[in-house]
């Protein structure tokens, strides 16, 4: 991949609503070329999805998030993958990461209440064959998610309006 192609993805990752024309101008490329590249990446699932980051908390939403440390026994032929899949297929599960260190999977879960999340862990997660133990950590406050600072103060431009 060329530096310029990489920049197309960076621009989109930062603001997925940036149009192909604008991207082409900013990178000194042909619009058709940019469009073709984006289509190709969409087809290859390199560009997976165009998302919006919503700060639900601001709307008074009190969804509960928990990070669950899960220890599992790797499976013959499938390693950790098949167990990970059994877990990530639940819609309550927002992310699943295989970790080095003291536990194997970091599982992020969302629910409507502490009880709902706790029930999910004890009834669904902990009972899967191969899951050896779970440790639940409830999220108290989100500061930064996916590179974006939540509730960050809007930083005004503090520069003088004209400087040499």
């Amino acid at each position: 991949m060329t530096q310029r192609e990489k920049q197309i993805l960076e621009i989109l990752e930062n603001d997925s609503r940036t149009g192909a024309e604008q991207i082409a101008i900013m990178l000194g490329m042909d619009v058709a070329e940019v469009r073709a590249k984006i289509a190709e990446w969409e087809a290859q699932k390199i560009i997976i999805k165009y998302n919006t980051i919503v700060n639900w908390e601001k709307l008074g939403d009190d969804t509960v998030t928990a990070m669950i440390e899960v220890k599992i026994a790797p499976q013959r032929d499938a390693g950790y993958d098949s167990l990970a899949e059994r877990i990530y297929r639940y819609p309550e599960v927002k992310s699943v990461l295989l970790m080095s260190g003291g536990y194997d999977l970091a599982v992020l879960i969302e629910g409507q209440s502490l009880k709902e999340v706790a029930m999910f862990v004890s009834e669904k997660l902990a009972t899967i064959d191969g899951v050896q133990s779970t440790g639940t950590h409830f999220v108290l406050k989100k500061y930064k998610m996916g590179g974006v600072i939540l509730n960050g103060k809007h930083e005004d431009d503090k520069r003088l309006v004209i400087t040499p």
Binding site: R159, L160, V161, I162, T163, P164
Partner: peptide
């Protein structure tokens, strides 16, 4: 001149 105005987009900043 600029300091007195509102809603100005400044392309005059050298930093």
């Amino acid at each position: 001149l600029v300091a007195e105005m509102k809603g100005v987009i400044s392309l005059g900043v050298g930093e």
